[in-house]
Computed example of a mutant assay.
Amino acid sequence: MSKTVGIIGLGLLGGSLAKALKEYTEYEVVGYARRQEVCDAAIQDGVVKAAWTEVEPLIKNSDIIVFSLPPDTNARLFTETAHLFRPGQVVTDVSSAKENFVRAVYES
């Protein structure tokens, strides 16, 4: 059975990652964006199977979660959602500066 990758942030980095995963892997890809029109465009373009403007459904429906928002936003959002992660879920990020994100992970 294929794993589901949830990408939090469908901007330049997250959107590019979603496209690559869709094209070159067997992963199912889902996404999160703040704006509904971004979610709709990603679904319409076939980049993601589903997309939400709330993070909780993405976390609940993903085996692997990639944070691809600005570093400080990633850290804040991880802290707010840490209680939702399940044992065995893989959580990573594509931030350029990791200090705040790593601190949020260790403190949660």
Results as ranks from 00 to 15, higher is better:
Y106T: 12
I8L: 12
D40M: 14
D40S: 14
A104S: 15
A104Y: 10
A18C: 11
I8D: 01
G46C: 10
A41F: 09
S2P: 02
E26F: 00
S95Y: 08
I8N: 04
L10A: 09
V29N: 13
L10M: 13
K49E: 08
A33F: 04
V29T: 11
I8E: 03
D93G: 01
R34Q: 11
V47G: 10
P71W: 12
I65A: 02
L12G: 00
N61R: 03
F101K: 02
V90D: 02
G11R: 11
F78C: 06
T81I: 06
V102E: 08
E107I: 01
V47A: 14
A50N: 13
R34K: 13
I65W: 01
T53V: 10
N74K: 07
V5I: 12
F78A: 04
Q89V: 02
D72Q: 14
S16E: 07
G9L: 06
V102I: 15
N74P: 04
V48W: 09
D45G: 09
V48Y: 10
E37H: 13
T25V: 02
K22S: 14
W52H: 00
E26N: 15
N100G: 03
S68C: 07
D40R: 15
K49Y: 00
R103E: 15
E28F: 01
T81L: 08
R86G: 05
F85V: 05
D93C: 05
Y27H: 14
I65D: 03
A104C: 14
K22C: 06
W52L: 02
R86A: 06
G14W: 04
T53E: 07
N100D: 14
S16D: 02
L10T: 11
C39I: 09
M1P: 01
A33C: 09
A41L: 13
N61D: 15
D40V: 06
G9F: 03
V38Y: 12
A82M: 06
